[in-house]
């Protein structure tokens, strides 16, 4: 089955083109990639730590969390996934998953078999390079998160995370001006930032009072991008985006 969207709206192509220049042939090959489409409800695991998947999961819409759980049952979210991401792409080469991936919202996903991915990579070495670049950038994001969670104060930590989310969402066309849908709960932010939900709420209230963010339901608006960037000490270099606009 092929995903039924035009090439310019294909989330995988959008995502890869934000970090890599694709030729028409390569774009077509990605567009022709077979995938099994599925809709997964919110708060469901897509894969679990210890799994040995024979396919990877492309997110077409919605948000996921990649996470690990301690023996005491505490969850650390190590990254958020969004349209265009293949959060378990590494399972193509690393046979056993060392993380779990769950949906935060209802997600539309496309499962791509490892056989198909391998064939694609064999036929199009530059797509292999693009996937490599993508996983290297994912590593850069993890390094940034360790620094953020380990060494910034909660307020700055949250500001940094919101900046990253906005820039990544903009790279796949999901931001209007400085507004985006961000259906991530305060509990989920707590698990990502390593602070309590109570603390997340205080920080968000303080950021609202300081004019850094406006939240209406799941809609985030950033009235003063420069101020938020400053609060988060945010420098988008680590996202290695090729599109200048995305890094604005």
């Amino acid at each position: 089955m092929h995903a039924s969207f035009p090439s310019q709206d294909n989330p995988l192509i959008r995502k890869l083109e934000s970090i890599f220049t694709l030729t028409d042939d390569e774009r077509q090959a990605l567009q022709n990639l077979s995938m099994q489409l599925a809709v997964i409800k919110e708060d469901q695991d897509i894969v679990r730590e210890g799994d040995r998947p024979s396919r990877s999961c492309l997110i077409l819409s919605g948000f996921t969390a990649t996470y690990k759980i301690t023996a005491g049952g505490k969850r650390q979210i190590v990254t958020f996934g969004m349209a265009g991401d293949i959060p378990d792409l590494q399972s193509l080469h690393l046979k056993v998953l060392d993380i779990s991936i769950g949906t935060l919202t209802q997600c539309r996903v496309g499962f791509i078999t490892h056989d198909d991915l391998r064939n694609l990579c064999t036929r199009y070495p530059r797509i292999t390079a693009a996937f490599w670049r993508e996983t290297l950038i994912e590593g850069a994001i993890f390094r940034e998160w360790v620094t953020n969670v380990g060494r910034r104060e909660a307020y700055n930590r949250m500001a940094h995370m919101l900046c990253e989310l906005l820039v990544r969402l903009r790279a796949v066309g999901l931001v209007e001006g400085y507004s985006c849908d961000l259906p991530i709960t305060q509990g989920e932010f707590a698990d990502a930032l390593g602070i309590t939900t109570v603390h997340v709420n205080r920080v968000l209230q303080q950021m609202r009072a300081d004019g850094l963010i406006e939240l209406k339901g799941d809609r985030l608006n950033i009235p003063d991008w420069e101020k938020l960037k400053q609060a988060g000490e945010f420098d988008p270099t680590y996202l290695h985006l090729e599109i200048d606009q995305a890094a604005a």
Binding site: Q186, G187, T196, T197, V198, V200, N201, R202, Q205
Partner: peptide
Amino acid sequence: DENEVAPGQWY
């Protein structure tokens, strides 16, 4: 009571 996740509770 302004706290939106656990108003009135002890933290």
